[in-house]
Write a protein that binds this DNA or RNA. Structure first.
Lengths: 200, 200, 200, 200
DNA sequence: TATGAATGAGGCTTCATTCAT
DNA sequence: GATGAATGAAGCCTCATTCAT
């Protein structure tokens, strides 16, 4: 393993507290107390509170990018229909977002508290991610299986809004499993972007 | 007039700063400076910084509730089809949310920073709002025009996610007008919840 | 009076502690404790610890410039010989520097701890001061009463080195009065820059 | 060799940083980074940050003392006139101080940051040095070649002020060589302390 | 000899709020 | 109604030094 115990404990505590109380409302003191380490030890590994926040973003962005890349690559390898690839992508994003809901909560709420340069990096990586997603949409549109009368930017927003909104309503203790939510949200999305029967 | 100049100036400044920099990052000093009033004057009208935040929520929630009530009432009065009423509601919510985007930004980002009791009130009023929206959905399902195979909670989330996500991507300087976005997002939503051709 | 009690007390305490222990070694806590005010009150009037340091510099620089201006102006008014004007200037600088020795100590030791822009301002104002002093030297050289074989920059340094060095050796409790020191150091300086008997 | 590489590197880095940024503003971390060694290694050779500062003083004091002793001894050996010996001493001090300007800068600025006992030692060695210098002055006064109407303490201060002030104005990139400065400052000093024509 | 993670005390600053006027 | 000086608690971060390896 590459990360020491201190790093792990601190990140775990930070994630927990940030997602629960918010970034601004959580003090470094609380974090180190929850992690069971001293402030000095924490600052040995992280150069600022902002660093902790970014580390959380970084992990989430990396993870999602890797999964997207992998699913797209696998689909290409197998020659899957674009609709099937997109469905796999969407279901995976939703399921992963549920699995990493605390990260997602922090992501949505606290992006504006990152240092400007880091905020820019997050935006850049998010844009890259969206572009890969858009490529699938565009291919579907070209192939005539997705509707072409709505800007792709809006279609992208339409899907990712669901992903970001999960933490506002979904609870793992509720009646729906993550898989069900993933399947149903994906189905709603796909139905809304499908070529309508009479469409040209 | 009901509100004095001080109240207006302060709320305007607070909204501007909270939506731009975030609630936690904005000091009371900055707000009063931007509003051109003194701290004492501000504290004469608002009992705390939290009060300012809540006032912003209050206005937005009242506004949206009033508009929803009005549209539903008008639809009932005219005996409009439920699909038409829902369309009107959705388009209005989107358009209004664009018009009040700063409020929406604050709403999404800073809800967790409100005092607990106020947070509870916001949740309650939001729930009431959603219940009125759900009534429309349920009526449509009962009438057989909307699909019944997806929980209404998910359909609600599916729509309001778009509304909350607007500030993440929409810019009034872009190619799309607010009306176009309202119409297109509504259309995407309605298509996804409509009874499918072969559905029972 | 323009300054409140808090400002006065704080500056007095800061001057005392900075000159005694050094700027870096003195904590804001110590200053406010010595001044008998709270930290918050201090930060109401001074925006940083650096501000305190600069305030000390500012007062000293303003004072010295004002005195120099006045003496030069008076000399011009009365048509005094340049040597007499220079003597008056030098004696005054030395005497004033003894009177404000704590300020001078801080000045010498802690200039490099000022924020860069303030350091630049101090340098600028010091240069202006030196230029006015240099004008006297130059006039004396032109009139043939001061030697012309040594760069004025060195003559300036030769005199002000004595001024800065006072705090290293002079004590008001010693055998020499401030006036005596002023007169003797001035005499040493004037003798060293006078035209030598056989000089051309 | 007596000093290991680590010691040399660390002292070199410390001198550079202390003279540039000041002692208090320089962290041990910066020093070891600049020296290319680790903290542990540094603390193996130096017991504290204060130790580094003192080592710089120690070297400078030893050097200057050695040179003074040597020049005085040589003068005695050759039976040189006191004025010639003093001239040699002064020119050497100035030239050496220019050569070791960083050390001098640190010396002037940071003496008050040494631990009390070390500060006392520095003062003691400085005093010894001055006493040897004073002996020359006194001899000259007794021989009637230097003026006797000014306390020797002031004459000493008058000379060493120039030495300490060098770093405030002299730059090796300027028009004057170190030798020229040494000669001219010495000449100014000697002229000011010489017996005046009409003096008794 | 040397490493570098960890300590723990202390530093500077911010800020929502109060209160005498 | 309105002022703005003052409070006091808390916040983030730095750093010289130690110590197990």
């Amino acid at each position: 393993m590459r990360t020491t115990n201190v790093q792990d404990q601190v990140l775990r505590a930070a994630l927990d507290l940030f997602s629960t109380q918010g970034y601004a409302t959580t003090s470094v003191q609380e974090i180190v107390a929850a992690a069971g380490v001293t402030k000095g030890a924490m600052y040995h590994y992280f150069s600022s509170k902002d660093d902790l926040l970014f580390a959380i973003y970084d992990r989430l962005l990396s993870l999602q990018k890797a999964r997207l890349d992998e699913i797209v690559a696998r689909g290409a390898e197998r020659g899957d229909a674009v609709e099937d690839v997109l469905r796999a992508v969407c279901e995976d994003v939703v399921a992963t977002s549920i699995e990493f809901m605390p990260e997602g909560t922090v992501f949505t709420r606290s992006q504006h508290m990152l240092m400007p340069d880091r905020q820019a990096e997050v935006k850049r990586r998010r844009r890259e991610y969206h572009e890969e997603f858009e490529a699938l949409l565009r291919r579907g549109i070209d192939e005539g299986v997705f509707r072409g009368d709505v800007p792709t930017a809006m279609l992208i927003a339409h899907f990712f809004s669901d992903v970001h909104y999960l933490s506002q309503w979904y609870s793992p203790d509720g009646p729906l499993t993550a898989a069900q939510v993933a399947e149903q949200l994906t189905e709603l999305f796909l139905r809304s972007i499908g070529r309508a029967p009479g469409e040209d």
